[in-house]
Design a protein around this nucleic acid. Structure first.
Lengths: 229, 229
DNA sequence: CCAAAAGTGTTTATGATACACCCATGA
DNA sequence: TCATGGGTGTATCATAAACACTTTTGG
């Protein structure tokens, strides 16, 4: 006997993207104004539906690109939300994805061509459906990511100062860190390249710029080096 | 304009359950012999399809109960597998769930009434579809769970010896642990109750039995105590 | 010359690891 | 009495945390 797949219920599978950014001061969340019913005009995560001819990762990338123009970033699968009436119109199961991006590289395009906007966590507007739960879940995952490996790669510009990196960690961990201990810790990872160049915008003295050494990082990771923060 | 939900593709959503057990010596995996095509007669995780009137957690519990009689355990959502042709018959997205259970409490029922069987990790048979990937993913999650909180609750009988608990951790972590350091660590958590009673089956001297103190554990957890192993 | 941020090491405390002997009992 | 597993504590090492002053330079 062949199992009768046809007798089984099919459901709509949605994908919702939680995108975190950092602007040198605080963590931000990318939202769009929904342009269709239900909940038209409300703020929402970037969402859409899985199509027959793509897997979930592909759907997440397509949906994010379509709604924000953001492309070629690493989206990580997070969790499913499947409460029966979570979408008032029809039964959907939503798969959440999250990613970290560098605001400065994406901001102009976003505000010019899309209805997407960055929000501080202090003033996130009410979100549709269960999107607030998704954001909470993603925040926990971000915290976990930050404590198990370096995260600056995606969130900071290519060249950055120690101060910027520290502010990023402080924003994610939600606590002030000691400057010297922070630098010692980061240096112990040995995955930064100190440049000759200084950033003169933040002080009279100027502060050295650094770059991530992707190669060294990949090598250390492959060797099982622990980047526990 | 109302978004046309009807134009979107619907897909079958499967749920597959990865169940770990422990038998005082090693970690085991519960599998069933598939009794329908495709892949009839092959070993497989416990799987089924999400129905319209249930959420994913409910589906996982229903499916596991139906196939094994196992009930009232905590199933944790793991990850989605969505490769387009992962199921050769029709497009499905599979949501994996995992759980830990105490073999001795479930074994007789299982072998008597169901075609489910426990396998050592050493000799897991070839599995259908992408179930081997699911198992790998679940093993990583188990390792993570073991390093962030106590795991004996579900995997051991109500009363157990320190030796049993240590063997469990050794099985999960995949390494031998020092007896004294292990006990010191566990005692530092302060969530066990030492009973008067001794287990005489393993040695002439006998070894004291312990119970988990659920109340103390919940209280400590609520206070943010870190059970990092 | 002073305000404002950058840069730099050492001491202390805490937790992790390594390690070896006596105990109780049934056969 | 002896073989078997059970039970116990300390010293050392490594990592984390606390902590304050000097440097640079534009205004």
């Amino acid at each position: 006997m062949i199992h009768n797949y046809k007798s089984e219920d099919k459901v709509l599978v949605a994908v919702d993207c939680i995108i975190f950014g950092f602007d040198d001061e605080e963590l931000k969340l990318l939202l769009i104004k929904r342009d269709f019913e239900p909940e038209k005009g409300q703020w929402s995560l970037m969402g859409g539906f899985l199509k027959k001819d793509e897997n979930l990762d592909q759907a997440a990338n397509r949906i994010l690109y379509h709604l924000t123009g953001i492309n070629d970033i690493y989206l990580e699968q997070l969790y499913n939300f499947s409460k029966i009436d979570r979408d008032p119109v029809t039964r959907t199961v939503s798969v959440s994805y999250f990613a970290l991006i560098n605001i400065s590289e994406h901001d102009t395009k976003l505000t010019a061509n899309y209805s997407a906007k960055w929000f501080s966590f202090k003033d996130i507007p009410p979100l549709i459906f269960d999107h607030d739960k998704m954001v909470k879940h993603a925040s926990r995952r971000l915290l976990y990511r930050a404590s198990t490996g370096p995260i600056g790669f995606e969130l900071l510009p290519e060249k950055f100062t120690m101060r910027q990196l520290q502010k990023l960690y402080e924003a994610i961990l939600g606590e002030k860190l000691d400057k010297r201990n922070f630098i010692n810790k980061i240096n112990s990872f040995d995955i930064l390249i100190k440049l000759e160049e200084k950033d003169m915008s933040s002080s009279r003295k100027g502060s050295f710029l650094y770059k991530f050494d992707q190669e060294k990082y990949q090598k250390k990771k492959a060797e099982g080096f622990s980047f526990k923060f």
